[in-house]
Design a protein around this nucleic acid. Structure first.
Ligand SMILES: Nc1ncnc2c1ncn2[C@@H]1O[C@H](COP(=O)(O)OP(=O)(O)OP(=O)(O)O)[C@@H](O)[C@H]1O
Length: 440
DNA sequence: CGGATCGAC
DNA sequence: CTATGTCGATCCG
């Protein structure tokens, strides 16, 4: 396609720009990895991906999204032709109400371990600190910062990572080690807020308002400095942290100075509004590649852009989405933090991907084994489920699922299999499955 | 309720 | 010749 064609090469480049951007992965953007030559990395990933079945699937998704965006833009054009002044008044009242509820009394901290799985592995094998290293095989779960200099990222396929960085060392994950190390980290956190909230294995929110009350000689930054030092001493793991009046901002802040750094967004309305004004939408949790593109299409690149478009945006997106936008624009978020223990889990499932096999017999074997796997997990968690879901991934990467609400709770492999089988058979109508999963 | 999609880690 | 696994939230029919 390089020559002989009347189509200038630039057109193709532009046509695939968003796809290229998404192939680069979110982390490249979420945490400002400046050292990497993004263009070169993008080039390598693009060329390595081009032509694969996975890539074709991504192209299809990208095309679909482009269509959806066209619809959004048409609706926007229509809205622009209307008189929105009363709508804008309503929004302004909404803003005033939110503003009145703004709570700047709490000091929330988000703690995030740096390259967690990789860091834990480096403790066992310190020589790995000096070389690019990743945890995972087919797909990387994470990598150390040496590897990130080459553009290697979480969620990347191993062979592409290898192309970006031929010296990359791969380690298989050992999850038990990570959960054990996470416990050690929490032993420190609990001293600063005994009702800290574990957000994932390597992240937690703390409310240090009380701690500050009891240590009036310390600033929030000093307390967090101390937390990070203590975690490092106690566990040899370095962590980054964000300090802010609410969880949403604390999370953004913790990404600002990583690795091994911290950032404080002070409890001051003006400072917060100023910070949000230029903050790219994607930096906030909940905005992924799809929402980012939709927002970009309607003219919202940073949170400050929301205000000028408030009349239109409030009609363009769902109520939930609009409320989310408004809260982000204002820099509002959750100000209460509590342990996740007092919380009901909603689902438990297991899934695995395997090579193409379409014969229905082997497929049933797979169903039986995943049912057994699931029974094990359910017993370990002492749970049973009232809904069974069967998920199948085709060789095209298309995913289909069938679920059924039951009259009673089940947990045995036998029951799981029996209830799941008819669902699988419905799905078998579709051609050549690769994969399956289950959840109650 | 059921299915698909999005997003996080 | 190669693209994960697990979970929660949301939207829509
Ligand atoms: N796409 C993914 N698939 C599976 N596991 C993931 C994925 N992304 C992250 N993880 C796991 O969750 C852990 C925490 O992820 P997180 O996004 O906080 O990044 P990190 O590896 O800790 O690095 P850093 O926070 O310094 O950027 C990681 O160590 C990683 O192994």
């Amino acid at each position: 396609m390089a020559s002989g064609d009347s189509k200038p090469p630039r057109v193709e480049g532009v046509g695939h720009f968003s796809l290229r951007h998404s192939l680069l992965g979110p982390s490249l953007f979420k945490a400002g990895q400046d050292k990497v030559d993004q263009n070169k990395v993008g080039e390598i990933i693009y060329n390595a991906s081009k032509g694969s079945k996975f890539f074709k699937h991504e192209e299809k998704r990208d095309e679909q999204l482009t269509k959806r965006i066209e619809i959004i833009l048409r609706r926007k054009k229509h809205l622009e032709s209307l008189d929105l002044s009363s709508q804008i008044r309503r929004v302004d009242e909404e803003i005033a109400a939110l503003e009145a509820s703004r709570d700047l009394s709490q000091i929330i901290v988000h703690v995030d371990c740096d390259a967690f799985y990789a860091s834990v592995e480096e403790l066992d094998r310190p020589e790995l600190k000096e070389v690019p290293m990743a945890v995972g095989g087919g797909v990387l779960t994470t990598c150390n910062y040496k590897a990130r200099e080459f553009g290697v990222r979480s969620g990347m396929v191993g062979y592409i990572a290898k192309q970006l960085c031929p010296q990359l060392v791969f380690l298989p994950p050992s999850f038990h080690k990570y959960t054990a190390k996470a416990e050690e980290v929490r032993e420190v956190l609990v001293k600063y807020d005994d009702r800290y909230e574990a957000a994932s294995v390597d992240e937690a929110f703390l409310n240090i308002t009380e701690y500050l009350e009891d240590h009036k000689d310390m600033t929030p930054d000093q307390v967090v400095e101390q937390i990070r030092c203590e975690v490092l001493e106690h566990t040899k793991i370095s962590v980054s942290a964000g300090i802010a009046p609410n969880a949403r901002l604390a999370k953004v802040a913790s990404n600002q100075n990583k690795p091994n750094g911290q950032f404080c967004i002070p409890n001051d309305r003006e400072t917060i509004m100023h910070f949000m004004r230029t903050l790219p939408v994607r930096k906030v949790n909940g905005v992924g590649r799809v929402f980012e593109r939709e927002l970009d299409a309607v003219g919202v690149k940073t949170w400050g852009d929301v205000f000028a478009l408030r009349g239109i945006l409030s009609k363009l997106f769902s109520e939930k989405a609009w409320s989310f936008l408004l809260n982000c624009y204002l820099g509002l978020g959750r100000t209460y933090i509590h342990p996740v223990a007092e919380y009901e889990r909603k689902s438990l499932g297991t899934e695995s991907t395997f090579k193409d096999l379409s014969g229905p017999r082997p497929l049933r074997e797979k169903l039986r084994s995943t049912a057994q796997e699931l029974e094990k997990d359910l017993l370990a968690a002492n749970l049973a489920g009232r809904t069974v879901t069967v998920k199948v991934k085709l060789h095209t990467y298309q995913v289909h699922s069938r679920q059924k609400a039951l009259h009673r709770s089940i947990f045995s492999a036998e029951d799981l299999y029996n209830y799941a089988l008819p669902l699988l058979q419905e799905l078998e109508e579709e051609p050549s499955p690769v994969d399956e999963a289950e959840a109650p």
